[in-house]
């Protein structure tokens, strides 16, 4: 009998990717009083997990997980509206967690919840670390396939295609396994109204870092955050002569 898939999908609440982030006055970070959404790569992860179930793979349970402030609940509800069965929210209002801290936390979740497949976004679009999946694989000593563009599961064998420079690479490994998702893996669905309403009734456990025995202490210090240099505005020339003059001025002619 095929191995039952017990999937963990970690999701992160980030500044919406269509919103332009602004650096705060103290230059310690960006203004967070803007629209937030689920990290786009994590949407791909949820979508892929749900598609595995829809493809009649033996998915026993899809667990969505998030660590962060109370508002992270919103994206867990979105994950559940997209098809996750339940959620765990580690409430952490004060400190920002670093990839290693998150990886250690996820390791505990994998152990406590008996997971055999973790699908993560390859990176979050706020800090762009691209580390958590890899660190988790190292901590668990599981095989990993990063930046997946296609995932096939047959029995306990996973075949993952990843786009690399100049072509594609195909990896194969046995469960349990870590997969991180890349852009072309799928196209995430909209959360439908009936599913949004169902998601409200799905179980969502609130936990703390202490429940998992992780301290989440910071190892990195943000020295300074600055905006990229402002873009020089273009100018308009009135006519062809003006353009030629301008080009000469710039030394292009």
């Amino acid at each position: 009998m095929a191995t039952k898939l017990r999937i963990l999908v970690p999701v992160k609440r980030v500044i919406d990717y269509a919103v332009k982030p602004r650096v705060n006055k103290a230059q310690t970070g960006v203004e967070t009083n803007v629209k937030h959404s689920m990290n786009p790569f994590d949407e791909l992860s949820i979508e892929e997990a749900v598609r595995l179930r829809e493809k009649k793979k033996p998915v026993e349970d899809i667990l969505a997980f998030s660590a962060g402030p109370a508002k992270s609940q919103d994206i867990l509800r979105t994950a559940m509206a997209m098809g996750a069965d339940r959620g765990i929210h580690v409430v952490e209002e004060k400190q920002e967690l670093e990839p290693l801290g998150v990886a250690k936390l996820l390791k505990k979740v994998v152990e406590q919840e008996d997971r055999n497949l973790v699908i993560l976004g390859k990176q979050s679009i706020d800090d762009d670390a691209n580390q958590t999946g890899q660190m988790l694989a190292g901590l668990l000593n599981w095989p990993q396939a990063t930046q997946a563009s296609q995932v096939e599961i047959d029995g306990d064998t996973c075949t993952v295609t990843r786009e690399v420079d100049g072509g594609v690479e195909t990896l194969r490994a046995k469960l349990p396994m870590i997969i991180t998702t890349d852009l072309r893996l799928n196209e995430p669905r909209y959360a439908s109204l009936p599913n949004i309403m169902k998601a409200k009734k799905k179980p969502l456990d609130k936990k703390t870092l202490a429940d998992f025995g992780v301290d989440g202490e910071k190892r990195l210090k943000t020295v300074k955050v600055t905006e990229p240099p402002a873009r020089q505005g273009g100018g308009k020339v009135e006519d062809v002569d003006g353009m030629i003059g301008k080009l000469k001025e710039l030394g292009a002619l």
Partner: peptide
């Protein structure tokens, strides 16, 4: 209504 979706982020909104 029979069915519906809500935009979860700015991209979906657009």
């Amino acid at each position: 209504v029979e069915d519906g979706v809500v935009a979860e982020n700015e991209t979906q909104l657009k």
